[in-house]
Amino acid sequence: MRKTLTGFLSAVLAVGLGTLSLKAEPLAYPHKVVTLVTHSSPGGGSDVFLRELSKYLGKYIGATFIVENVQGGSGAKAVARVAAAPADGSVFYATTPTYIYTSLLSKPSATYKDLEPLVNLFADSEVIYTRADGPFNTLQDVIDKAKKERGRWGAANPASLERQAAEQLKRAAGVNAAIVTHEGGGDMMLNVMNGTLDIGIGEIQELRSQLAAGKIRLLATFNPERIPEKPEVPTVKESGFNVSLVKFRGLAGPKGLPDNVTKVWDEAIKNVLADPEYKARYTEEVLVPNYIPHAQYQAFITNFADTTEAFLKETGAVK
């Protein structure tokens, strides 16, 4: 019931918005309806990403976009759903590092290897933050404390890129820190704000309200380059520790996508990222555009997965 209802409504919405913007010529597409699958619940990260994207995609691709929430199994069920779908460009999955982690840690029936990466759109900004009235002003302060006594660092989820980032930073700096995992960024933010943790590592989106209120301070970002909207925040690399991460956000489909489909998407995603209205929206959410076309996306994902697997093996999380 939930699926059909939300699907129907987003279809109506997409049609409505599509007719509003007839002046741009959308690219011809072999399917009238395209289903975008996410493992996140309605209102969650990937869900909001897809719904926002589908509002603007209609201008560039001649199809109607429906968002389908396939929850459960930390993404395993959504991946299985897409892997089993026909590889004709009618069904896609919203990728995030989660699907790599779940594939590696939980060994589900269908893994990231059963999907074909289509195109990447964004990189979420991963940052290190502390409470504004706390004792730390730079990342070096945090490292110094961890050298003298014992650091207390937070990561949002146990099997996540943030945890990996924390472990890598700890090694790069050669310090002793407890890495405390949480069940979501909100839970962790409370522990940073009440002083239980020295720092938290999380996505900048989740911190926006506290940043605006001046309650927390950004110390560094794990992005390879500084965040365009926060030019004063240095990267971890610039702070002297050779760790950088790309928390990608893109699309993947079943294996064997036809060329005419991937070409349309390459073109359309490039254009939608340049769309002024969409740009205003995603800039506000501090999403950094990171366009990777189909030809290079496979190699990017494989590389990401290999690095992650090597790391997980090293820490003993997988054998």
């Binding site: 930390s74 982690y101 840690l105 939980s106 989820n157 146990p158 099997a159 996540s160 945890r163 995992t181 069940e183 999380a317």
Partner: peptide
């Protein structure tokens, strides 16, 4: 999923 280490248990 184990809430701290992220490994799966009894699944």
């Amino acid at each position: 999923t184990d809430p701290i280490s992220g490994v799966t248990r009894f699944t």
